[in-house]
């Protein structure tokens, strides 16, 4: 039976991610784990995250998980979710902290002066709710998901990759921002597939059968 490791560094509810994956992939052992050895032994890795990125980085290092995450990001099917996507970048404006530098680019806060909707009303931050995800490249994780399908977002910061070629999806909220990135064995999303009903389950199912 194949093994999936969901990296647990004490930030956020990982049970939802585990249950959603168990729901779509019957033949897999899902481990929610803080053990670097288990992460390295897994066939696939999910790197989630909730809360503030400075706390996430601190807790990741406090548990000695950084080397295992970086190793997994080099050679296993790897899915980053929310702060788990943001942490893959070089630096975040949130708390002015460095990230894991897997991707070049900055994690930025939604600019207050651009938070105006088409009707002139103020756009609230956090960006919370179901928004359209526009696919920017064909990718096995998009199979069966219509372009523009809505996914559930909840965040105040977004990634701004230096290399536009890794952008896998964008979403509009005052500004167009990067909703997903993809490169080789890594796919990472700002939205929450585990909370995005049918579209989210399809993406997780695609991840579980992905052979990058």
């Amino acid at each position: 039976m194949s093994k999936l490791a969901i990296i647990d560094y004490g930030m956020g509810n990982l049970r939802s991610v585990a249950k959603a994956i168990e729901h779509v992939a019957a033949d897999v052992q899902v481990l929610v784990t803080a053990d670097p050895a288990e992460v390295l032994a897994a066939d696939r890795v999910v790197f989630p995250g909730q809360g503030a990125m400075p706390d996430c980085m601190r807790e990741l290092d406090a548990r000695g998980l950084r080397p295992a995450v970086l190793e997994a990001a080099r050679n296993k099917p790897f899915l980053g979710i929310c702060i788990g996507q943001q942490m893959l970048f070089e630096h975040s404006q949130e708390g002015d902290v460095p990230g894991l530098c897997v991707f070049k680019g900055e994690v930025r806060r939604f600019p207050a002066d651009k938070m105006v909707g088409a009707d002139g009303a103020r756009l609230k931050v956090p960006h919370m709710g179901w928004n359209e995800v526009w696919q920017k490249q064909a990718h096995p994780l998009w199979v069966g998901i219509p372009d523009g399908a809505r996914f559930y977002y909840v965040h105040s910061y977004y990634v701004d990759p230096a290399d536009p070629a890794i952008v896998a999806a964008t979403t509009d909220y005052g500004i167009p921002f990067t909703g997903a990135v993809a490169q080789a064995n890594i796919f990472a999303v700002q939205f929450h597939p585990e909370k995005s009903a049918a579209a989210g389950l399809q993406l997780l199912s695609n991840f579980m059968s992905w052979k990058p």
């Binding site: 939802s16 249950k19 729901h23 559930y152 909840v154 929450h192 909370k195 009903a197 989210g200 389950l201």
Partner: peptide
């Protein structure tokens, strides 16, 4: 909450 979260994948 545990039971609902196992079967309903929305917030």
């Amino acid at each position: 909450v545990e039971q609902v979260a196992e079967q309903v994948f929305i917030p």
